[in-house]
Simulated scan of single mutants.
Amino acid sequence: MSNYTHILVGVDLSDEANHVIQRANALAAASKAKLSIVHVVEPLTFAYGGDIPVDLTEIQDQLQTKAVEQLRSMAKANNISSENQHVVTGQPVSEIHALADELNVDLVIVGSHGRKGLALLLGSTANGVLHGAKCDVLAVRVKD
C-alpha cells in the first residue's frame, strides 16, 4: 500500500458520513497524511412560477451556512482542523475533482452504497469521482 501524503474525503453530511470520515482518519493516521474534508452544496436554480421569477438566493445562502455548520461539527468530532474543511458550491463530482487537483491530494475517499447494475451505470457521485480522478480513489461502503 502506498503512503499517502494528502487525503481528501468527500462527505454528504448524512449519518453515514461519520463512518467514512472515521475510515479516512484511520488511513490518514496510518500514512501520516494530511486529511482534508469537503462537502459540495448543489446550487439551486431560479424557479419560475408562471411569469414571476423566484429568487432562491436567500435559501441558497441558508443551505451554505447550514452545510458549513454541519461540516465544522463533523470535522471537530474527528480532529480535522478548520483550514482543512471545505464547503463549495457546484456539481459534486467536478468540484471534488477540482479541489483534489488544487490541494494536490493523492487519495480521495468517498462513501458508496455499493449499488449495482443500472443504478451504478446511471452514475453515483462515488462512481463519477472514481472515473475522473487523477489520483487514487477509495470508496468506503456505507449501509443502505
Rank of each mutant, 00 (worst) to 15 (best):
S2F: 08
S2T: 10
N3K: 11
Y4A: 05
H6N: 14
I7E: 12
V9C: 08
G10F: 05
V11R: 06
V11P: 03
V11D: 01
V11M: 06
D12P: 10
S14I: 00
S14M: 05
A17M: 09
A17V: 07
V20L: 12
V20W: 12
I21V: 13
A26G: 14
L27M: 15
L27G: 07
L27A: 09
A29V: 12
K32M: 05
S36F: 01
V38E: 03
A47T: 08
G49K: 10
T57C: 00
E58C: 00
I59L: 15
I59G: 01
D61C: 03
Q62G: 00
Q64R: 07
K66S: 04
V68H: 14
L71V: 11
L71C: 09
L71N: 10
S73R: 15
A75E: 05
A77K: 15
N78L: 05
N78F: 04
N79K: 15
N79H: 15
N79Y: 11
S81A: 14
S81H: 10
E83A: 12
V88M: 11
T89Q: 11
G90V: 09
H97L: 08
A100N: 09
D101L: 10
E102Y: 04
E102I: 01
N104L: 11
V105I: 13
V105R: 15
L107F: 01
I109H: 12
G111E: 03
H113L: 10
G117V: 03
L121I: 07
L122G: 06
G128Y: 02
H131V: 05
G132Y: 06
C135K: 02
C135Y: 00
V137E: 06
V137Y: 01
L138N: 04
L138E: 00
A139W: 02
V140N: 11
V140I: 15
R141V: 00
R141W: 06
